[in-house]
Amino acid sequence: MPLTLNANFHDPEKRPIRDFSPGDDFYEMLIDAHRDLSAEQSAKFNAKLILLLANHIGDLVVLREAIARAGETA
Protein backbone atom coordinates (compact mmCIF):
# COMPACT_ATOMS: atom_id res chain seq x y z
CA MET A 1 0.00 0.00 0.00
CA PRO A 2 1.47 3.38 -0.93
CA LEU A 3 2.00 6.19 1.55
CA THR A 4 -1.28 7.96 2.29
CA LEU A 5 -0.97 11.64 1.44
CA ASN A 6 -4.59 12.63 1.56
CA ALA A 7 -6.15 13.78 4.80
CA ASN A 8 -6.59 10.66 6.89
CA PHE A 9 -7.09 11.69 10.50
CA HIS A 10 -10.25 10.26 11.95
CA ASP A 11 -11.64 9.41 15.34
CA PRO A 12 -13.43 6.07 15.56
CA GLU A 13 -15.11 7.25 18.75
CA LYS A 14 -16.81 10.29 17.34
CA ARG A 15 -18.27 11.40 14.09
CA PRO A 16 -16.72 14.74 13.22
CA ILE A 17 -19.10 17.55 12.46
CA ARG A 18 -16.33 19.49 10.72
CA ASP A 19 -13.93 17.88 8.28
CA PHE A 20 -10.91 19.65 9.77
CA SER A 21 -11.66 18.60 13.36
CA PRO A 22 -9.81 15.26 13.63
CA GLY A 23 -6.65 16.78 12.15
CA ASP A 24 -6.88 19.77 14.48
CA ASP A 25 -7.47 17.41 17.42
CA PHE A 26 -4.28 15.55 16.55
CA TYR A 27 -2.26 18.71 16.06
CA GLU A 28 -3.31 20.06 19.42
CA MET A 29 -2.49 16.75 21.10
CA LEU A 30 0.94 16.81 19.51
CA ILE A 31 1.78 20.38 20.50
CA ASP A 32 0.40 19.80 24.01
CA ALA A 33 2.64 16.78 24.43
CA HIS A 34 5.66 19.04 23.95
CA ARG A 35 4.54 21.61 26.47
CA ASP A 36 7.13 22.12 29.21
CA LEU A 37 9.79 20.09 27.37
CA SER A 38 13.26 21.49 26.71
CA ALA A 39 14.54 21.47 23.12
CA GLU A 40 16.51 18.32 23.81
CA GLN A 41 13.60 16.59 25.49
CA SER A 42 11.40 17.55 22.56
CA ALA A 43 13.83 16.05 20.07
CA LYS A 44 13.97 12.82 22.11
CA PHE A 45 10.19 12.77 22.34
CA ASN A 46 9.88 13.15 18.57
CA ALA A 47 12.37 10.34 18.02
CA LYS A 48 10.39 7.98 20.22
CA LEU A 49 7.14 8.99 18.59
CA ILE A 50 8.55 8.30 15.11
CA LEU A 51 9.84 4.91 16.23
CA LEU A 52 6.49 3.94 17.72
CA LEU A 53 4.58 5.00 14.63
CA ALA A 54 7.11 3.43 12.25
CA ASN A 55 6.79 0.11 14.01
CA HIS A 56 3.03 0.39 13.87
CA ILE A 57 3.18 0.97 10.11
CA GLY A 58 5.79 -1.73 9.70
CA ASP A 59 5.66 -1.78 5.90
CA LEU A 60 9.11 -0.77 4.70
CA VAL A 61 7.82 0.33 1.34
CA VAL A 62 5.66 2.94 3.07
CA LEU A 63 8.39 3.95 5.49
CA ARG A 64 10.93 4.35 2.72
CA GLU A 65 8.56 6.62 0.87
CA ALA A 66 7.79 8.67 4.00
CA ILE A 67 11.49 9.14 4.66
CA ALA A 68 12.00 10.29 1.09
CA ARG A 69 9.12 12.77 1.30
CA ALA A 70 10.25 14.18 4.61
CA GLY A 71 13.66 14.83 3.09
CA GLU A 72 12.31 16.82 0.17
CA THR A 73 12.68 20.55 0.40
CA ALA A 74 9.76 22.50 -0.85
Binding site: A7, R69, A74
Partner: peptide
Protein backbone atom coordinates in the same frame (compact mmCIF):
# COMPACT_ATOMS: atom_id res chain seq x y z
CA UNK B 1 9.11 23.13 18.63
CA UNK B 2 5.62 24.37 17.90
CA UNK B 3 7.06 26.68 15.26
CA UNK B 4 9.05 23.81 13.74
CA UNK B 5 5.91 21.72 13.40
CA UNK B 6 4.03 24.68 11.99
CA UNK B 7 6.69 25.36 9.38
CA UNK B 8 6.89 21.65 8.55
CA UNK B 9 3.15 21.57 7.92
CA UNK B 10 3.46 24.60 5.64
CA UNK B 11 6.33 23.05 3.67
CA UNK B 12 4.48 19.76 3.24
CA UNK B 13 1.29 21.61 2.31
CA UNK B 14 2.71 22.67 -1.00
CA UNK B 15 2.69 19.09 -2.23
CA UNK B 16 0.48 17.06 0.05
CA UNK B 17 -3.24 17.33 0.61
CA UNK B 18 -3.14 16.01 4.16
CA UNK B 19 -0.90 18.87 5.28
CA UNK B 20 -3.13 21.45 3.61
CA UNK B 21 -5.96 20.31 5.84
CA UNK B 22 -3.73 20.97 8.86
Amino acid sequence: ISRIFRDAVLELAERHAFARRL
